[in-house]
Amino acid sequence: MTARQPIPVTVLGGFLGAGKTTLLNALLARGDRRYGIMVNDFGAINIDAALIRRRDTRMITLTNGCMCCGPAADQNAALTALAEGGDDGIPPDQIVIETSGVADPRRVAQLAALEPTLLIDGVVVLADASAAAGLLADRLVGDTLIRQFARADLILLTKTDLVNPAGLAQAQAAIARAAPGVAMIASPASAASPDDGGFGAALVASGGLSPPAGTAAARHLPDDDIDHQADARFSSWSWASRGPVDRGRLLAALTALPPGVLRVKGVLPVAGADGRPAATVVQMVGRRWRLTPLAAPIGDTAPALGGPPPALGKTGRGIGHDGQGALVLIAATGALPAAPDLQTMFDAIRL
């Protein structure tokens, strides 16, 4: 009997709002491989899992903390379940781990490397070209980005359409200083926006996620100073809508948030001009916000994310369906407004 080949594992990292989920959707849309997906969200509700459009894919979600700070046994049990193929027993061709935006992706890869049935294919870290230089210089979050970039096999610049040539060069120089010697690819402006999936298509066309020779994987980076402690450096707050919300009040609430809120994401039933609610994806990075219709999943149902966090590996109808919605806010520790104030602010957007 021929021994089964190890399953390649790609770790997809990057700071909050860099475009990880959009890239993952672009890969899944190809439909040429059977993927096992693990999605880790820092908040108590895994919003990213609700935004993944799946085709012949098994997905496991981990919530309420950063994978690189959590118990290794839980993560390895989840990876084992993915590698075994679930109920049908058919192993995936590849496993992709989408880390939380504050995770150390190299640490996640080191945990996955403990599994004998898995082979680390590479650590790919996305960087928002419009925000990377400023974030690297930020005293609260800069260290997190430096760690992510320096320990990557490949850095992919997204959102290059939001910067001019000088801004792109500034971002590249800042990242190169933080991660000397790590390969970096800037996607063309016409395919850079993670909102339209063009970036993911460009990456797929360029050969997928395999890191080029000479990158961190080839250099065998040591397991040094794993004291990331994202759970201590960042905090999150979650809100469930449990009914339709008013678009104008929602935008007013987002605009009123203090600059210390780094990321807002969620799916809410937003009432349109006719008063009928529609499942709407809410994305806010820094001061940039965007509302878009929730895309229908491909050949599967959306994960059950309304209410308490879902049990490991379970999916079903939930957020974005039947008037259910949720938001997650993420900030550096101490930068979030008090929970009662946030509760009052967002309760007021309900119809």
Rank of each mutant, 00 (worst) to 15 (best):
I97E: 10
E98N: 10
A133H: 10
R106S: 11
K159P: 04
R139F: 10
S130P: 06
I90V: 12
G89M: 10
Q110H: 11
T158W: 14
D138Y: 02
V141S: 12
G85D: 09
V141I: 06
E84R: 15
D87I: 05
I90W: 08
G122F: 04
T160W: 02
G85A: 11
I146Q: 15
Q110E: 07
I97P: 07
G86R: 14
L168E: 15
A166V: 07
P92R: 02
V96H: 01
A137H: 05
S130T: 06
A129W: 05
D93T: 00
A133M: 10
P165F: 07
D153S: 00
L162F: 08
D87N: 02
V96C: 03
L135W: 04
P105G: 07
L156I: 13
L119D: 07
L119W: 11
D88L: 09
P91G: 06
A112L: 08
Q148H: 02
L156F: 05
E84K: 03
G167R: 15
R151A: 13
Q94A: 13
V125W: 00
L140C: 00
L135K: 11
E115D: 14
L126Q: 05
A113K: 12
L126Y: 08
D161Q: 11
S100Y: 03
L162C: 09
L140I: 01
I97W: 08
G101T: 02
I146L: 15
L118C: 01
I95A: 00
A131T: 05
D104V: 01
Q110L: 08
L126M: 07
E84C: 11
S100I: 01
Q110K: 04
A150P: 09
A137D: 08
L156V: 14
D121L: 09
T158L: 13
